[in-house]
Amino acid sequence: MVTSAYKAEEEIMAIPIHWWPHRFQWLERFREATEIAPLWHYFINSALFSITHVIATVFFGAMAGFGFAKYDFPGRSFLFFLVICTLMIPFQILVVPLFIEIKALGWENSYPGLIMPGLMNAFGVFMMRQHASDLPNELLEAGRVDGAGEFHMFMRIVLPLLAPALASLAIIVFIWSWGAFLWPLVVIQDRDLNVLSVGLTNYSQPYQRPPMWGAAMAASTVATIPIACLFVAFQRYFIKGLTAAAVKG
């Protein structure tokens, strides 16, 4: 895929396979990709979509996880049960009613409509609760004796201690959101508002013209780079995060 992004169109399908482009076309395919569809819009939308999800899930997930793990308030078990139940709801069940709901809110085909439904996820809460319960209670008691407010303690003591778990969660959420396809496909009609995964289909099934594989491969490369970078940079958290997502989810 990556090498095809630098090949001339007729070389891509050449048999025998050209493992390395004979005529190396440095940015041709990428230029082509941006001409067929607003590739950079897609990229920016995907980045906005995923980064908002990461920040919101990590912050609110840690907060709720901490709340469920270290406080005893009426209704705690019931509310936690409710959150866990939402883990079992596959997104496909939500698509139709959620679309109607978002439409009623006037958010279809807009950033809020695109971003809101995935802003938090139950898995994050669940994972953070596990990690927050491992924190020593004495730490919180000591903070209280020192007169620290609860929210202040969360920000200054709990969040830093949860940092490694937060990093794993952030990576998982980024991968999920970056690859999200169903919801953006349904809620966005305006092509400038779309995310990369939906935008990619413009290259492989372009309207009224044959597929342009060079451009498709260039766009696919663009869609894979962020995750590949994460993988290279945080390999440890990456695999740990993914397996944690699996084993605990």
Partner: peptide, 15 residues
């Protein structure tokens, strides 16, 4: 302990 409810509230309302 009420702070716990405040902490989980955003997530609960969201879900």
């Amino acid at each position: 302990q009420w702070w716990g409810l405040a902490f989980v509230l955003p997530v609960v309302v969201f879900f």
